[in-house]
Amino acid sequence: MKILTIVPAYNEAGSIEATITHIRAVDLDLEIVVIDDCSTDQTAALAYAAGVDVVRLPINLGIGGAVQTGFRFAVDNHFDIAVQVDGDGQHDPAFIPNLIAPILEDRADVVVGSRFIRREGFQSLFMRRLGIRLFQHLNRLLIRQKITDSTSGFRAYNAAALRVLQHNYPVDYPEPEALVLLKKRRFRLAEVPVLMRNRHAGESSISGWKSIYYMIKVTLSILIESVRLPDG
């Protein structure tokens, strides 16, 4: 069983080493690939120095394009499972075994780490939570399954899901939309509780006026994805 951790990172020099150390501390045979999304700081150099695989994108693609590069890496190198762990330190790698358990037991194809099942740890900011609530209800309506944390990027995928996502993964703010996309292709989704930390360093990509654009854009994307034909 080959398991890959995909670590998308954009200017995360302050936390990338710690993220890699924490992944290595997990009692599993995990390979690590850092997708450096054209960082302007030392992120790539630090990742190289840590001795992990590093894919450097020559032009900044944003989180969706970076993560998809990881999916392609996973498929090209015949991994059975891939776990996305953000490079900013919000995702605690200690939960990776819980995250992949439903896939190993063949109960799910895609597993989302949710901070809202047990309501512990960093619960995000008020506005962000409001948005997450909206997507929760929207998703429940469209895919008929309750996903409490649809914006969480802390996820595990099996090989079948990866094969689809390597060709078909949303761009700007991909997480909520990807769930609709996967569910429509009859992949089984599951959620497990995780703790999230506030980021070690760096800033959230979504703040201020951007959050309003984010909400409108994601809502539109989800609605359109839900009426799109699976082959489209």
Partner: peptide
């Protein structure tokens, strides 16, 4: 861009 990154 993805392909270039993977190939490098």
């Amino acid at each position: 861009i993805q392909e270039v990154g993977l190939m490098k």
